[in-house]
């Protein structure tokens, strides 16, 4: 099992770090609809809370490709760790005696 876990995580990291800088920059489905129907101006950034890595761009990194790749690296590892912890919690809640 372990081998495939690391392969799966490896694939995700390659996508997030090396492929993401080549992703399309065009507006996505909702952004397109918001522009076409004239409500994109309603969006506002939260004045109280600042995201550490806004717009998938690592701050302080000059190269846009590198900044995107580093953001992808950080996010992929973070969701991996959080989801594993969540999984551990779910496992711990399992009824004793049920199959493993």
């Amino acid at each position: 099992m372990n081998r495939w876990i690391w392969i799966g995580l490896g694939v995700a990291l390659v996508l997030a770090v090396f492929v993401s800088p080549f992703a399309s920059q065009d507006p996505d489905g909702l952004e397109r609809v918001a522009e076409d129907l004239g409500f994109s101006g309603y969006a506002w950034g939260n004045p109280v809370f600042n995201s550490p890595i806004p717009d998938y761009t690592m701050p302080g990194v000059k190269s846009q490709a590198l900044a995107t790749g580093l953001a992808g690296l950080a996010g992929t590892l973070l969701v991996f760790i959080l989801a594993v912890l969540l999984g551990k919690y779910l496992k711990s809640r399992k009824e004793p005696g049920s199959r493993v």
Partner: peptide, 26 residues
């Protein structure tokens, strides 16, 4: 348990990969 981690990692990474569809939209 580890599979949840891999699924989250893959989904996060794949969601960064906007692909172009029709009319300047991704």
């Amino acid at each position: 348990v580890p599979l949840m981690g891999v699924a989250a990692a893959f989904i996060f990474a794949a969601q960064m990969l906007n692909f172009p569809i029709a009319g300047g939209t991704s």
